[in-house]
Nucleic acid binder design. Sequence first.
DNA 1: GTTTACGGTTAACGGTGTAAACAGAACTGA
DNA 2: TCAGTTCTGTTTACACCGTTAACCGTAAAC
Lengths: 253, 253
Amino acid sequence: MAHLRAPATRRERQREATYDEIVTVSARLLAEGGDLSLRAVAAGMGMTAPALYRYVANYQQLVDLVAFELDKAATADWAEAASRFPEDDPAARLTVACARFRQWALAKPREFALVFANPIAAADTERRELLTLATSGHYFTDLMWQIWELYQFPYPALDELDPAIRQAVLDPLIPAKSDHIPTEDRGLLWIYMRAWSALYGVVTLESTGHCDPRVIESGQLFRATILDWLEPLGLQHERARLTTILDEELARP
Amino acid sequence: MAHLRAPATRRERQREATYDEIVTVSARLLAEGGDLSLRAVAAGMGMTAPALYRYVANYQQLVDLVAFELDKAATADWAEAASRFPEDDPAARLTVACARFRQWALAKPREFALVFANPIAAADTERRELLTLATSGHYFTDLMWQIWELYQFPYPALDELDPAIRQAVLDPLIPAKSDHIPTEDRGLLWIYMRAWSALYGVVTLESTGHCDPRVIESGQLFRATILDWLEPLGLQHERARLTTILDEELARP
DNA sequence: GTTTACGGTTAACGGTGTAAACAGAACTGA
DNA sequence: TCAGTTCTGTTTACACCGTTAACCGTAAAC
């Protein structure tokens, strides 16, 4: 079964490898502080720039490809860090994941901007669809689903929701692991959207630097935002424990 | 008194006019969907690109100059819209201003990104200082101060605050009209930072398009975020009235 | 009225994304 | 095995970009 996804022909394998190299070279360039340019990427893999057009249609597609993979890799890191808590403790895992997400955004603001601050026009359906695949979104929604299963926090019924929101939670156009969520429970996604909006807000504010550096350094703005969301997620009783975990993560070097 | 700020010499007046033209031409370019480039701006005012270096040291300075003025102009617009409510009704004014801020961010995402999503390195003290002058920040903090004078909502005492935050509110490095706020009341700025973070979050999320278009179109995410902040600002009793105002603004064409 | 400083020019360098034409290697089918 | 096709890279070229250097007339200053 596994080898079904493995490319059959030699050429396809080669092509896949080239895509991988594009991503790794791009990631290296960004990590080294350089700009992400077609020419630089091509040069980094011993090619000329026009050759890259055999793999991406234009610069924006290169950016999207790299953004997708950066998101995937970063999410794997947060998940790995979160997995120091057992699977049946999604609240602790989410706490750690959020803190690591922020830490990543602060340590790699350029990468963060590429993935999360990259403007997407409403009309651009192609890029929108790519966006719905983002690994981080699936990871976070899944954690929130597990938290709900465990703590049964309240969420709006479908008929309480604004019609537009009802449509949006029934047929999500955002990165969300939602297939397994029963129709009547889709109000959960509204809670998710609101929570994600809050998380995204602080982290973007801090990552882009539109904020007092001392406030960023202290982590208090982020901390307060996270703590505000414990109650809506039914985690009041876990407050002390989760706060400890959060502060542990924030104190990380 | 007024003519004190007016440039004395003819040359200085000329120079000032050129700065104005740089800004207007830049704004026009952005509004027309073009990119903001030294060459395009220069061409737009009948000059060659190197001539602009008599006015700005580099491209980033041009961006900062334009960003500052865009922010100023946009703030004037929100303020004008908000002034349909009397001066002694800052709650209504803030409601309108927030809605107009969002509307501006959605209508002009490129301009919004320039002003509010432009990355600022922590080390770049020069750009940081320019940032503290942003008109919008001063306008919003002033409104919040007026709301506090009227409604006396609670705020943390200085010794309740994390040391880093205490320092930050005592000597703010953010755009805030704070000179007139007594030292013991500086905890107010912490409320401001948190509220601004929430507002900034939704608006950035929506403006950059990292959100379901239907959710953006409905305005519900923004609405919910604003309503969440009524209570912390002591506006519970005004809830019905302010919600009506907010919905009025959201329904605007 | 001479000198100085300002505000512009042109030319040039190295960088960007992208299109077109072309060449060779790798697969495909008879 | 050989011809034909497809895929992957090249070179060349174009139109932009930010930025520097050298140069020059004119307006202000002494």
